[in-house]
Design a protein around this nucleic acid. Structure first.
Length: 434
DNA sequence: TCTGGGGTCCTAGGACCC
DNA sequence: TCTGGGGTCCTAGGACCC
């Protein structure tokens, strides 16, 4: 019997901010998305005020005055660094780890001796003490049951009464009698299950599958025929049969995107070109980080989705590359070509993006036998040097002339009015002890 | 006035081929 | 009145995840 754990940081972005601003403890706090657009993390106190995930800031702003709500702009450099620290401590829980997202990981404890829930509590206490992040840990025989155990651990903490209090913060669904586990599954709505979203949840409800236990016991061939292989695997995992392996070495990404909404609408081609040039460079950085090359560059521009009365204008264009490349100028050139081909004046553009497709390994990339008039192969050391200088001295230290100066105010810049310092990743922004 | 960003997988349907 | 069968590849769209 295997044992998998799922560990995640509670309200992760908020908890990261609280580590460096203890005055935020106990207060309603939200972290805002890029452009300070909507709430992407909420403290328990903010949830209690009724702030929904993804709530637009302009709709909840009044809670600042009415309820003492504090809002901060997302600081992803800080959260990424805190995540690395949390993940390395979490890895000590078992013998293999899959980092599943910025705030959660699966850990394989199969075959480990002793009381595994007790072991989980020790790791949890260490993360709390050393990093300052509160966590919940769920354990079970499959990834889906570990997820569900984690959900129980979180919910028993936040909404007492929904599950027994002793399951709060650490819940092990693998070390209890099967009838007991079945009871907890029966107490869990089917749309709380990992892999069942609101749409599937509603459809399942329509055929009488209302709880996790209903899905675990459903007729498998019927599930597969009506809803596909993904839900069939979920159902089996709920029944305790592992179908989803631990991904300890995540495969390279098949698409790489860099997209942004603008702080204010953009109308002019030169401004869009500067933004698209920047986005292409940032996507190229990500591409090189995973040692890949791309063979197609897709660019889109679009107006706001939310302007009442007018249909949004959304266009995209894909430009193939003569040679698969990760060379920033080659990708920028293709991106600007795509932009030129589809730009029309007279629209208020709200968002643009560059998405790289046709990704393959840089070492395996096939050389074009006849590159004739195409660009000669780029010297990879130029891009390596650019990346290492920008990593060491800060983004924008070395850049291409089509891009904006990092200190230049661009019309397309993001709005981030509540940004906290990068306490752990910038020497200039270290916290000062007095 | 003001609504994020980045991924995955699966499926259906069309184009094309033999 | 009558019009095959089977396979691959690609794309768009839908569902899900954080």
């Amino acid at each position: 019997m295997s044992t998998i754990a799922l560990l995640d940081g509670n309200n992760f972005y908020v908890s990261c901010e609280r580590v460096f601003r203890p005055a935020l403890q106990g207060r309603p706090v939200v972290v805002l998305s890029n452009n300070d657009g909507c709430a992407i993390a909420r403290s328990d106190e903010a949830k209690a005020l009724g702030v929904r995930m993804g709530a637009p800031w302009f709709q909840i702003r009044h809670l600042q005055r009415d309820a003492g709500l504090v809002a901060v702009s997302a600081n992803f450099a800080l959260y990424g660094d805190m995540s690395d620290r949390m993940m390395s401590l979490a890895a000590g829980l078992g013998h293999a780890q899959e980092v599943y997202s910025i705030d959660e990981c699966f850990i394989d404890l199969t075959g480990m001796p002793g009381d595994l829930a007790e072991r989980a509590r020790k790791v949890q206490a260490r993360i709390r003490q050393w990093i300052g992040i509160p966590t919940c840990i769920g354990l079970g025989p499959t990834k889906t049951l570990a997820k569900l155990a984690n959900h129980i651990a979180k919910t028993a903490d936040r909404k007492p009464g929904s599950y027994p209090a002793h399951l709060a913060r650490v819940c092990h669904l693998g070390d209890m009698p099967l009838a007991q586990r079945a009871q907890y599954l029966a107490d869990t709505a089917v749309d709380e299950v990992w892999g069942v979203g609101p749409r599937l949840g509603a459809k399942l409800d329509g055929v009488g599958i209302r709880t996790a236990q209903d899905l675990a016991q459903a007729h498998l061939p019927t599930i597969q025929r009506k809803w596909g292989i993904v839900l069939a695997k979920t159902a089996q995992e709920l029944a305790g049969i592992p179908c989803l392996p631990l991904e300890t070495n995540p495969p390279p990404r098949q698409h790489i995107a860099f997209t942004r909404s603008f702080g204010q609408p953009v109308t002019q081609l030169p401004d869009l070109a500067q933004a698209v040039s920047e986005f292409a460079a940032r996507a190229a950085e990500k591409l090189r980080r995973q040692h890949s090359v791309a063979s197609q560059v897709m660019v889109f521009i679009r107006t706001s989705l939310f302007r009442p009365g007018s249909k949004p204008h959304r266009v995209y264009q894909t430009v193939p590359l003569a040679l698969p490349s990760s060379h920033t100028p080659a990708l920028q050139k293709a991106a600007l070509q795509a932009l030129d081909a589809m730009y029309q004046s007279g629209f208020l553009y709200a968002k643009a993006g560059v998405i790289l497709h046709g990704i393959q390994s840089a070492t395996a990339a096939q050389l074009d036998l006849d590159w004739g008039a195409a660009m000669p192969p780029a010297n990879p050391r130029l891009m390596q040097t650019l990346d290492s200088l920008n990593q060491r001295y800060g983004r924008g230290t070395l850049r291409f002339a089509t891009m904006a100066h990092p200190q230049q105010a661009t019309v397309w810049a993001m709005k981030q009015e509540r940004l906290t310092p990068s306490y752990t990743t910038s020497w200039a922004e270290l916290a000062v002890a007095r």
